[in-house]
C-alpha cells in the first residue's frame, strides 16, 4: 500500500504541492485529476524521488520511502511512466525495454517479459531495432509504458498516458493497461486530463487544485455528482 501523508513539495519558494494525502491500496487503480498546473506531475515526481518532500512522508509496503533516491524507489517496486514520452531517443526499442529491466537479474524472465511486451504492443515488435526517437508519438507512449512494466513493478505511476494520442489509440492503450493490471496484479496511480476515461478505470479518485486535494471519493460517486463533474472535471 502506498500512502502519502501531508506531503509538501516546493520549487524554490513556490509551494507546488501543499499537504497532499493520498492512499493507493494493493491492486487498486486510483486516479489523480486536476487542471493544468494543479500539481499532479509534481506529486508523482515526489513519489519517485525526483523531487524532495519539504515535509510530510511517503510510506510504501511498511517502510518510508520519501528520503530515498529515485533508483532505490524503483528497486522498492514503484515505477513511473513520466509525462511526455521520455524515451531514450538514440537507443533502439529493444534497448529501451532492456533498460526497463535494468534492476532485474533473471535474464531468462527478462527475455520472456520482452516477448510479452511485444505481444501487448505488436508495433513495438515490428520496430524493435529502430531508434526510439524515430517512433511516432503514440508508439513512443506505448514504449514508455512497456518499458516501465519491464521492471515488473508492484505499483505503476502513470502520468497522462493519453496525452497527444488519437482517441482510438487512447481506448486501445487503456484496454491494454487494464489487461496488464489484471495479469500483473498491479496497483496504479493514474494522472489524467481525460477524467471520464480515468474514472472508468479507477475505483477511487482525488481532485487536485492549486496543489491541494479539494475532492476525493470513489469513481462511482464522482461520476454521479454532476455539479462536481462540471466544476472540476469538465465533462
Amino acid at each position: 500500500m502506498l500512502e502519502l501523508r501531508d506531503i509538501v513539495v516546493r520549487y524554490g519558494p513556490v509551494v507546488a504541492v501543499d499537504r497532499v494525502s493520498i492512499r493507493v491500496e494493493e491492486q487498486q487503480v486510483v486516479a489523480l485529476l486536476g487542471a493544468n498546473g494543479a500539481g499532479k506531475t509534481t506529486v508523482l515526481k515526489a513519489i519517485s524521488g525526483l523531487l524532495p518532500c519539504a515535509s510530510g512522508d511517503i510510506a510504501w509496503g511498511g517502510g518510508v520511502i520519501s528520503k530515498l533516491p529515485p533508483h532505490r524507489i524503483v528497486r522498492a517496486g514503484i515505477c513511473q511512466v513520466p509525462e511526455g514520452r521520455e524515451v531514450f531517443a538514440g537507443l533502439s526499442v529493444y534497448d529501451n525495454l532492456r533498460l526497463g529491466a535494468y534492476l532485474r537479474r533473471n535474464r531468462h524472465a527478462v527475455r520472456s517479459d520482452i516477448d510479452r511486451m511485444y505481444e501487448y504492443f505488436p508495433v513495438l515488435a515490428e520496430r524493435r531495432d529502430q531508434a526510439a526517437g524515430t517512433l511516432s508519438g503514440g508508439e513512443q507512449q506505448m514504449l514508455v509504458i512497456a518499458r516501465a512494466l519491464m521492471s515488473s513493478p508492484a505499483m505503476l505511476l502513470l502520468d497522462e498516458p493519453s496525452l497527444g494520442l488519437a482517441p482510438l489509440v487512447v481506448q486501445q492503450v487503456f484496454s491494454i493497461l487494464r489487461r496488464i493490471c489484471d495479469d500483473m496484479r498491479l496497483s496504479v496511480l493514474l494522472v489524467e486530463q481525460d477524467a471520464e476515461t480515468a474514472l472508468s478505470i479507477a475505483s477511487y479518485a482525488y481532485v487536485l487544485e492549486a496543489g491541494r486535494v479539494v475532492v476525493e471519493g470513489s469513481s462511482v460517486a464522482m461520476q454521479g455528482d454532476e455539479s462536481l463533474r462540471r466544476s472540476y472535471l469538465g465533462y
Binding site: E25, Q28, D225
Partner: peptide, 11 residues
C-alpha cells in the same frame, strides 16, 4: 464523496 464505511474498495 464516499460512503464512510468503504473508502478504498479493493478492485
Amino acid at each position: 464523496l464516499d460512503a464512510p464505511e468503504d473508502p478504498h474498495p479493493a478492485i
